[in-house]
């Protein structure tokens, strides 16, 4: 049975992990390479780097970070943030990323999705979506926002569910659905949003934004019908380990990958 994936997400700015990451040992908590390796050992099913660097120089550093991470990470690595062209994607994939995530650039130029899928296969192309609930909408609707690094971002007029469907038609192999209403609140994912997107598309859907405890992860899967859950704070601040999250889900009947024993420890 296909396991539901648990994915820690690291925000990286010019080669350093931002958002404080609390660590139990002496390792460099700001080094994305170290952190990715740590989560791999903990049993993460995948790791996401999100590049929030504003400068071209910062993005160049990101490629180096990805290359160094890929040397020692033997689980999938997805990279997003600042990718605007097929060439940007190519450089990131060549550096060792397994998937690239595009967001604002896809809204501005939807053909980028298809171009990426044609060049690298749709399994490489992830559409990231930042959404805001339309106030007072019933049944609820969500609008896609771009440039969300700054405040509430910019409106696009795109309906989130319709955009997800179109992105899949264009060639996206996975959709990461982020709720800006829920993000950072630690009050749980937007389950209506997740369910609406998940039922509308034929590719895996990853829940993002709002996880505050393990029950939220469970709800995203059981009620939001997500295929994977992405979380930052609850893992970075060591509120829970990946193993605890998997144990919690497994007890509730969710199929998860058991945390393997590294080959050196046999």
């Amino acid at each position: 049975m296909l396991a539901k994936r648990i994915i820690p997400c690291l925000d990286v700015d010019a080669g350093r992990v931002v958002k404080g990451v609390r660590f139990l040992d002496h390792r460099d908590a700001g080094d994305p390479v170290e952190l990715a390796a740590f989560y791999d050992r903990e049993g993460a099913d995948e790791v996401v780097f999100y590049d929030i660097s504003a400068s071209a120089q910062g993005r160049g550093i990101m490629r180096d970070v990805v290359a160094r991470t890929a040397e020692q990470l033997f689980i999938p690595l997805a990279v997003g943030g600042g990718l605007r062209t097929v060439q940007d994607m190519r450089l990131m994939l060549k550096a060792g990323a397994d998937k690239v995530s595009i967001n604002t650039a896809a809204v501005q130029n939807p053909d980028l999705i298809g171009q990426g899928a044609a060049a690298f296969g749709r399994q490489c192309i992830v559409l990231g979506m930042d959404t805001l609930r339309v106030p007072g909408s019933s049944p609820p609707r969500w609008e896609v926002r771009t440039h969300t690094g700054r405040g509430g971002g910019r409106p696009t007029g795109l309906d989130a569910v319709e955009w997800a469907v179109r992105a899949v038609e264009l060639g996206a192999g996975e959709i990461v659905v982020n709720s800006m209403d829920a993000d950072g609140t630690q009050q749980g994912y937007d389950l209506d949003l997740l369910r609406a997107v998940s039922r509308a598309v034929s590719v895996p859907v990853v829940a993002s934004g709002g996880a505050g405890d393990l029950e939220h992860l469970y709800q995203a899967i059981a009620l939001g019908e997500a295929d994977a859950v992405l979380a930052a704070s609850i893992f970075h601040f060591r509120l829970y380990s990946i193993a605890q999250a998997k144990e919690y889900l497994a007890q509730r009947g969710v199929p998860v990958r058991r945390v393997p024993v590294p080959s050196g420890d046999r």
């Binding site: 049975m1 296909l2 396991a3 539901k4 994936r5 099913d45 749709r122 399994q123 192999g173 996975e174 034929s202 590719v203 895996p204 295929d227 994977a228 990958r257």
Partner: peptide, 10 residues
């Protein structure tokens, strides 16, 4: 089912 089959399976 969702395609691609993406993730960890037994």
């Amino acid at each position: 089912l969702k395609v691609p089959h993406m993730g960890w399976n037994q």
